[in-house]
Write a protein that binds this DNA or RNA. Structure first.
Lengths: 188, 188
DNA sequence: GTCTATAAGGAGATAGAC
DNA sequence: GTCTATCTCCTTATAGAC
């Protein structure tokens, strides 16, 4: 599959090196076959973006935990989401590359928008789920909280990539989890 | 100046289109002159990175305010830093492009590290300055708080770029400012 | 020293053989 | 339908004229 091959090349070598030649070589296919499956390289990149973003959101969903202790659950869930990222740094870097790439082209900026909307939807679902299970309600609007969560995870991962300081990242995450817990109050 | 020309091309067209041809054309110079000033394109990109990161840190420093009211000052400073970013979205996008580009090459990963160290240093200086002026001390280690600040501003800006929703970004920023203020206690 | 002209290689896309 | 061979364009870098 060309998309899977492109994903491997991209994770390994970065978006700049992800040429049609490299992709078809990775897939063990002749170069000519590329334009038999995709009209252009951009068309493949668009399909690839939806795939890797979907995988990422799925991984975040799988990281949810639920023991009933709100602060501990938040901390565990955030740590699990962050761990899912740091375990695959190259895949995470691909997501940033796809975002910046899409933002440069007016034709594909919609893709970056969709990407971060997907993140927000996942965070919103999680916050709703937690509120329901722990019988609390959030003291700030869910859209604001969801964006705060996405911002923190996404920003923390980007800050982590250059120095890979997992220790301090976890401390930041715990501080954020405590903040989030303080924004919950018992529901009536 | 070739670096200034490269910065303009990069902000306008993105890193992928920032070729030696485009740079020299922007500078009104013949193509051959490029390699008279720089050994290679990567050498210029390295110098350009230090320039734009320096400009960014300087802009953040200029955004500091001080009225004595801690929560209000934090809110105003964070908003000013964020405004400095959103007023120049293309320049901010360049910073992300430079980071992801540098992270892909073992030879230049040091540059990405230096970039985020610069952000951290700026945030650390700000937190120290605020603590001194408002006569408070932080209840979490400064390195953790500094990374939290950088993460939030940087992550929020990246989340803002696709949908440009300034309204909700400011709400997130205010929530974060309140959180930060709650992490201060009067110094003895 | 400055710049023109060109080299040498890699990119995406395609025409046409099988 | 599949793949080989090639086309055209664009990249960085350089050799050599002025």
């Amino acid at each position: 599959m060309l998309i899977a091959a492109a994903a491997r090349v991209m994770a390994r070598d970065g978006i700049a090196q992800t040429t049609t030649r490299a992709i078809t070589a990775e897939a063990g296919m002749p170069r000519g076959s590329f334009h038999y499956c995709f009209r252009s390289k951009d068309e493949l990149l668009r399909e690839l973006a939806t795939t890797v973003v979907g995988d990422m959101v799925q991984a975040a969903q799988d990281a949810q935990t639920d023991t009933g202790d709100l602060p501990a659950d938040l901390r565990a869930a955030l740590r699990a989401m962050f761990a899912a990222i740091t375990e695959h740094p190259d895949e995470q870097l691909v997501l940033y590359e796809l975002t910046t790439y899409a933002l440069r082209d007016p034709e594909t900026v919609e893709l970056a928008r969709w990407q971060y909307e997907s993140y927000l939807r996942q965070a919103t679902d999680y916050l709703d789920y937690v509120a329901d299970r722990a019988r609390i309600r959030w003291t700030l609007p869910i859209p604001v909280l969801a964006r705060l969560v996405v911002t923190t995870i996404d920003g923390l991962a980007l800050n982590w990539l250059p120095d890979r300081d997992t220790e301090i990242a976890c401390q930041v995450l715990d501080a954020f989890a405590a903040h989030l817990a303080s924004l919950a109050e018992p529901s009536t």
